[in-house]
Simulated assay, not measured.
Amino acid sequence: MREFTYKSRDGNVEVLINANHGDALEKISGKYTGCVAFVSRSIANRVKVKCPVVPIIDGEEGKSIETALSIVRNAHEIGIDRDGLFIGVGGGSVLDVVGFSASIYLRGVDYVNVPTTMLSMVDASLGGKTGVNALGLKNVIGVIRQPRYIIIDLSFLESLPMPSYIDGFAEVIKYGITMDRELLSQVMNNPDKLLGRDYEVLEEIIYRSLINKASIVEKDELDRGVIRAVLNYGHTVGHAIESVSNFSISHGRAVALGMICEARIGVKLGYTLRDVPGLLVDALTRFNLVNRVTIDANGLVNAMMRDKKRSGGFIKLPVVIDVGRWDLVRVRIEDLTKLVTEECRSTP
């Protein structure tokens, strides 16, 4: 087992990797006056915790203000007080809504994230961004509040369908290409073991991914500076690809295609070394994350115009310089529109 701690404005966050979630939760919950576990209904029978277990809807359908209100109601009926604990067990959508609910219940109680997908293990579980969808908008209601503990139990990955499992490696490769050359090398050198869900290699890969993300979160917890922008690499175009495809392209694959496109744009802008796009294609292809698709360039541009990083006539775009090096650049909307049309019409 690997573990580390990162600092937040509300105190330290303890991260346990390759831990037994039942054992860890038993120790943690003993520190509180009571606890309740809100669990993805698809895995409710696999959760080992000595607390009331409340199954909730997972996926975007369950990431709503109605679900948050239901969580608050359940916690109140169970008798959770301000010294009680919420436990979220599931993928990113479950962790988002449980974390948000913990943040508003009695003006805030501690919560634990127990991610059960590869994507949530390396991304959504750490960082403190919580929220729900409303008014037809994604994450329009939310707060930044860190979990008190993050428990990564690799046994949850055993039953995860392969397409969902490999989705998480887009985020791992993102950390590697932007911040950690050694991580990228480890991923590219061990595709068979990683695809075979080898615990020893997975533990190291997840550990390095989360260490990288935690180092960014510590420096810019509230996402008001510059440095946290690196976590959005590939997401400006990736989110637009998801939208244009009506979400038929998964998040991991959309981010993979977004990284390739943004690397090509970086080359055209004169920031990115010419071999970076090819290296990304190579790494992502090893995990079957590169779909050959033709994208409606006009639709892609229109979706990007709604990006939250747009400011006036510019979009702030994190750009990789070389493996492990990046910068944040302001790109004119008209220039980005032209480059997206030229470089992102088809992939790879």
Rank of each mutant, 00 (worst) to 15 (best):
V143D: 11
S42L: 14
D153F: 07
S42K: 15
T116P: 11
V39T: 09
D275N: 15
F4C: 07
I166E: 12
E203L: 05
R41Y: 12
S215K: 12
V290R: 03
V53C: 05
T67P: 07
F247V: 03
I177L: 01
L231H: 03
E203C: 05
R264C: 11
Y165L: 09
I43G: 10
V143G: 00
F314M: 14
I87G: 05
D335I: 13
H251K: 02
I152S: 05
L119V: 04
V331L: 03
T272K: 03
Y105S: 09
A68P: 05
E204W: 02
I65T: 13
E182S: 12
S103E: 10
F287V: 05
I65K: 08
S103I: 09
M118H: 07
G270M: 06
G312Y: 00
N298R: 14
D327H: 03
V49K: 01
G234Y: 01
G299Y: 06
G131P: 12
D180F: 00
P161K: 04
V323N: 05
F156C: 03
E218Y: 09
P348N: 09
F169H: 02
F86C: 08
G108Y: 11
L222S: 12
E3P: 00
I144L: 08
I87K: 07
Y175T: 02
R82F: 07
G312I: 01
G79Y: 11
G225K: 04
E26G: 00
K129G: 11
F287T: 03
D335G: 02
D81S: 10
Q146G: 10
S248M: 13
I28C: 08
D81W: 10
L284P: 09
L210K: 06
G278P: 05
K48E: 15
D282I: 00
I152G: 08
N12G: 13
A263W: 04
H76Q: 13
G91V: 14
V329F: 05
I65G: 13
L273T: 11
A214T: 06
R325K: 15
A37D: 07
K7D: 13
L157F: 02
V132E: 13
I104L: 14
L126G: 02
A303S: 14
E3W: 04
H235N: 02
G196Q: 01
G128R: 08
R2P: 08
A170L: 01
V72H: 01
A124M: 08
D198P: 00
M179S: 05
I65V: 15
L106N: 07
